[in-house]
Amino acid sequence: MLLNQYLLLAAALFCIGVYGVLTRKNGVMVLMSIELILNAVNINMVAFGVHNAEAGAASVGGAVFALFIIAVAAAEVGVGLAIVLLIYRNRRSINVADASLMKG
């Protein structure tokens, strides 16, 4: 397959993720959208890694970076869910639009 196809898939996933973050009202759905973006990056990284290896680069950086991203994404979503839970306990709602105590 051509590199292009992977990059297009990643770009599409990225856009869906950004759209989700911007439009979803449910806090957990927002977290899932962020995961989608991170996975788009993973596809990019691995595709570029293979592409670079074909061009003779000895580096396996792309694949290794993808592993780092998976680990960081897990940590990030752990913290995110904890914060959502905290808000739910106080407000009985995880609607992002309700988070409007501060404005100005």
């Binding site: 973050v21 962020i34 990019n44 808000i87 992002v96 988070a99």
Partner: peptide, 29 residues
């Protein structure tokens, strides 16, 4: 307010980290 601040910071921060990562991927490519 503190939790709301944490949530806002988290969502926007995670989004910006994702942009940052996408940038790294492109530079790497």
């Amino acid at each position: 307010e503190s939790q709301e601040a944490g949530f806002k910071y988290f969502v926007l921060g995670a989004l910006s980290s994702a942009f940052f990562l996408y940038g790294i991927a492109l530079v790497y490519g």
